[in-house]
Amino acid sequence: MSQQPTLTVIPLTTEEILGVGELLYRCTGMIFGENKRYYIERRITERMRRTGIATVPAYLGLVRSHVGEREAFINAFTINETYFYREEHQLAALSQSLLPDIVRNRRPGDLVRIWSMPCSSGEEAYSIAIWLLENWQLVDAYNIEIVGSDIDTAALGRAREGQFTQRSLARLPPALRDAYFEPEHGHHRRIIQDLRESVRFTHANIIDPASMTGIGKFDVILCRNVLIYFDDPARLAAANALYDSLNPGGYVCLGHSESMGRITDRFELARLADAIVYRRP
């Protein structure tokens, strides 16, 4: 088997690092600076090699002018750390507290919408589906719609394909792996077709309201471990987008190290037995 050639990383000047960081911030809200120099250099080098462009200014010019390369540029910098049943306590809160509250005034068959944003390669969105099938007795009484969204189009492609490694599946009990996944093939297991069809994946950028047009309103949003990569203005933009995407009385779940109270006072804090969540009044 032939080995891939070692990537020779192009050293960037301080000005070039700043240029990459500014463009990435405008596109995504994420903060990348001198403290992540090697991370930036590796990814820019890879994109320059693939596009055949020799200088950083020329490459950034391509990103600004070409939608396809801007998409590849964003994909190169997104961080897709995820796995099934991540922050399981929030899934417990979903079935034990949030959804029972949401459906109190709804009739059987009514629509209940849940949004995983960002969803990365799909593990967290599919986790919601599996958890509800296993843990919420009323799952079949309502029309549950689960939507997964992400800024990374490559990750969305993997989510739709539904192929997962043992690392992604490590926290799932073996019985659930056997019930909801096809037999292992090439060190991967594919989630069964019924579940692939039960989750809809769509592209969205949480700091760009135009990209979320048509997605609609949700009853519960799981937006975990993305605000930690933003500065204060980007966090506020994201919080406002989450608020606008919730039905009145809807809930948003953040990552364990994130707090909506430090960003905006538009949400009510709800302390549940299993989790701290935020409610749109």
Rank of each mutant, 00 (worst) to 15 (best):
Q4L: 13
P5E: 07
T8Y: 07
I31M: 12
G33Y: 00
Y39D: 08
E41T: 05
I44W: 00
T55Y: 13
V56C: 15
A58P: 00
L62D: 01
V67I: 04
E69P: 05
E71T: 14
I79Q: 01
N80A: 09
E81D: 14
E81C: 11
E81M: 13
F84P: 10
L91F: 04
A93I: 09
A93E: 02
S95C: 13
L99S: 05
R106P: 04
L111E: 07
I130V: 10
W131A: 13
L133W: 00
N135G: 12
V147G: 06
V147F: 02
S149D: 01
D152L: 10
A155N: 07
A159V: 13
R160M: 11
T165D: 07
Q166W: 02
A175N: 08
Y180G: 10
E182F: 10
I192P: 06
R196K: 13
V199L: 06
V199N: 00
R200V: 10
F201L: 08
F201R: 09
T202S: 15
I207V: 12
I207H: 01
T213D: 07
T213P: 04
F218H: 02
A234M: 08
A234P: 10
A237N: 05
S245C: 05
G250D: 00
G255Q: 02
M260V: 12
D265R: 06
A275V: 08
R279V: 03
